[in-house]
Design a protein around this nucleic acid. Structure first.
Lengths: 130, 130, 130, 130
DNA sequence: GTGGTCTAGACCACG
DNA sequence: GTGGTCTAGACCACC
């Protein structure tokens, strides 16, 4: 379900957060579905349960999940997540464009790259927009 | 000359590397010009000399400067730096576009943002391309 | 595990890098094996942890190890290291031969030295070639 | 006469020593010839006279020159220098061969490199042996 | 004066 | 416990 990269410099709990929110975005985990239990996911990833717990706390803090005592952790609002992610991505995108501009890159060059990305893998795994 | 952002999560030495290479790109520090001495920059930034030293080591490792014991640290090849930065930036840009695509954002939306960035601050401080 | 040479003019951290990469080449430290922790190696060598840390940073920069915060430092690719070392050694060798030639030494003289080195300690501790 | 490499990590005085002893080996500076005065060489190299003085001291320490008060510095025994250099070079050579052997390189491979070096530039600038 | 290395001791985030 | 960063203060070789 999830594959961790031990080489990645980012903390493991952050990777888990990312992977799980990816699954939500892709619809694999949809509203009100239960996440795997802390212990089982920890076992599956060969990771300390504390680390998974921290990831779950983070997800709850971001309002992406809600936890019910004695029952587990559930997906709350994938739709909000997409909006969140879009905003983040657009912010990153603008920062990138500004850097490119300062380096003397031409707008057309960037636009071509966009066309490339969108034509290349039209059906790779994104979510539909309509 | 340089201003550090204490809220920035990245290590101080990395910020110094970035700021100095920015100055090179902008031509403020040009080929064979001396960088401020380790101790003076450390004083200016209210930072430990070791931290500045580490930044200078990093710059030398990147072939952006060369240092002569007893004389100082000098800018080596700003031109290579620009190429380096462009490659990095383009890589980031493509990663960004891919994320945007996977989130269902339309290419036109991104292109508009590009136009915005390029018209907005046409003369802000980038380097000339010709 | 490692013995430092205090008379050596080279910096300590560099000696540590060399010794550890030697151990990798000899197979004492093989892929994905953990290196000793920064603090324990520092204690073993009676050296400041910062110095060991710097050596470990260097090893990671050379792609010989990868480190995971909170877990430790691990060997990544000893095979690449051997190739690296061979290239370095051949470069040194050629430089040496050129110097010898310029000093009027005869090729046969050098070849005899080679034979001497290879017959002398046939089984000293090198790595196998097959 | 001499060209310094500011990029070279070795100290400048050491470079000067090397360059001057090279000139002796090549016969450009032969026995009892005067070396350029400290001040003139310093000017020629755009270097601090102290640095040149240190190089000259080093040369005298190695018995390659002798200085006469009020007259200057003179070449003493280039022949001895060649022997010295040969010994150094052979020591380096053996160290190189040992490293190569430990890395699994074959003696024939090294011998080929020797033949290459000797055939390549038969008349490059070495000194005659007979 | 310069850069470079090292020690001692501290703090942080992560697991 | 781990690696990573930072400070403070020292010493060295070089120019």
């Amino acid at each position: 379900m999830i594959l961790l990269d031990q080489t990645d410099k980012r903390p493991i709990y952050e990777q888990i957060v990312d992977k799980l929110s990816d699954l939500m975005i892709r619809g694999v985990l949809s509203e009100n579905m239960p996440l795997p239990s802390v212990r089982s996911l920890a076992a599956e990833l060969s990771v300390n349960p504390n680390t998974v717990q921290r990831a779950y706390n983070e997800l709850e803090r971001l309002n992406l999940t809600y936890s019910v005592k004695g029952k587990g952790c559930f997906v709350s609002a994938p739709a909000k997540l997409i909006v969140m992610r879009r905003n983040e991505t657009l912010k990153d995108f603008i920062a990138c464009v500004n850097k490119a501009r300062d380096l003397g890159l031409e707008p057309d060059e960037l636009k071509e790259l966009i066309d490339g990305a969108y034509s290349d893998t039209k059906d790779k795994g994104g979510i539909a927009n309509d």
